[in-house]
Design a protein around this nucleic acid. Structure first.
Lengths: 141, 141
DNA sequence: ATAATTGCAAAAGCTTTGCATGGCC
DNA sequence: GGCCATGCAAAGCTTTTGCAATTAT
């Protein structure tokens, strides 16, 4: 059961299990497309009409601190959240707000190799993220 | 003379040459580190005490439209501006707001090759940006 | 002349904060 | 019971907008 897993992941992170946190976790896993706070609020409000936006912000910030979600940046200025922790990159649509995940180990390995060989003076590389920008074809995004 | 070039680049873009626009261009080329609007305002204000923030925003937006600068987004939610148009990537410091440019044709070629061979289903790649995240060594950033 | 640009100030997001209340452990 | 999390509302920022006055061409 999904809820159980979510409760466990809160406990592991030393967070109290509250219905709001559970609801935000559920929203994150249901809303596929790197939701904004607004989308999350909308989703959560279905079963939680009284949840405060502040709570959602605080909750998400807590999750980021604990490493349960990551922030995704776009050229626009609204923060979006990504619940997937495996290493992956993002495809950004030039024409819409759509963001899609892109997993490809081969690419990760290639980059890792590259930065292992080619050192950057005075800089220690910890992570490399790709923003792959373009357009989606034949798809309602 | 630098000013002349800047005036010309405005004319080429079909923009009227105003002292405010010249000042913003100068700020962009002097402030190396991908300045925020605030930094730009600060710089411009030295010789232009009366410039309005709104004007700076409008000016920058115009420049972005004309392709004279690009927006750079960080995990924090303040927009920053990059006057360098050549293809390049960014080094992000994990510990500060410092952003540095990273030029490396070899890497660009490698990525270009990669995405030429490895097609992504339903997606046309137009640009690939790297966010290289880590820490600067022996350096006051 | 006239169309574009600017300054000013108000407004519009998005996000954070403080504090009293309420709920987990 | 103690402490952490929540709701609420206000405040803080960054950014946008409308409009009259100004300026470049």
């Amino acid at each position: 059961m999904e809820k159980e897993k979510q409760g466990i992941s809160l406990k592991i992170s030393n967070l109290k299990v509250t219905s709001q946190r559970m609801a935000v976790l559920e929203a994150l896993s249901s809303l596929k497309n790197h939701p904004t706070v607004d989308k999350i609020k909308e989703y959560v409000a279905k079963n939680h009409p009284n949840i405060a936006v502040g709570t959602i912000y605080k909750t998400l910030e807590t999750f980021v601190d604990k490493g349960l979600v990551k922030k995704v940046k776009t050229e626009k200025d609204v923060m979006r959240y990504d619940p997937i922790l495996e290493k992956h990159h993002h495809l950004y649509c030039e024409k819409s707000e759509h963001i899609e995940d892109f997993f490809y180990d081969e690419l990760n390995n290639m980059l890792e190799e590259y930065f292992k060989k080619k050192r950057i003076p005075n800089f220690k590389v910890n992570d490399v993220k790709l923003q792959i920008i373009g357009t989606f074809k034949n798809k309602k995004v």
